[in-house]
Design a binder for these strands. Sequence first.
DNA 1: CGGCATCCGTGAAGATACTG
DNA 2: CAGTATCTTCACGGATGCCG
Lengths: 121, 121
Amino acid sequence: MANGTEFTAHCRAQMQAVQDTQDVIGGKWKIKILTILYFGKTHFMELQRRVQGIGSKMLSQELRDLEMNGLVKRTVCDTRPITVEYELTPYGCTLKNIIGDMEKWGRKHRQKLIDDEKEGK
Amino acid sequence: MANGTEFTAHCRAQMQAVQDTQDVIGGKWKIKILTILYFGKTHFMELQRRVQGIGSKMLSQELRDLEMNGLVKRTVCDTRPITVEYELTPYGCTLKNIIGDMEKWGRKHRQKLIDDEKEGK
DNA sequence: CGGCATCCGTGAAGATACTG
DNA sequence: CAGTATCTTCACGGATGCCG
């Protein structure tokens, strides 16, 4: 049946693929971090200040994940005391489309909520 | 300074927007559900079978969220016993791009992991 | 069948303090 | 400054049972 196996195959694969990218950029902070790095090389401290609400523990943890997935490059500067910079790798830039689209959709959605409130209720 | 206020404004807005869409399609299950509905109208039970691992509690909860955000339409069929169908609204279809992109990226990423394993190590 | 209420375990994430 | 270790808290979500 066209609806049985075929559906299963397509849909399973699709859900799996979406899951895979969720595993990489999901979670509470990763996309925000990437959004900032999208603007350029940034120091750890700078990141912590900009991702308001995040603790150093979470930040370094998330950064390590991103680094292990090859999205982010970590550079230790030999200042005193030590300083670390993070930046997007070319592979990390691969996500710009997705993040950009999410950003656009978010804006529209927020606008929609406002419009709905004005009229509807 | 070009780096101070300007950055802050742009970046804050961008993070906020991304956050907004994360609030809508984030979480463990929502995107998977949408991925299935992307294929067409589906019964509750059918959904639960296809989103493997989800319990009825989570499923109905997630569906309610999606419905409240106007992404999904809920239709009660007067069969006996009652049956419920869910489908994407036009607004829900708005997300196809994002989900589609995530799917594409996920496939490439998985491929990359395989390639990396072959060569690198 | 769809959905809700309840109870409960677990893991994610916050706070704090410490090291190099 | 960057990162780690430890403790604690809490909400996400699983299991179960009931009701319309």
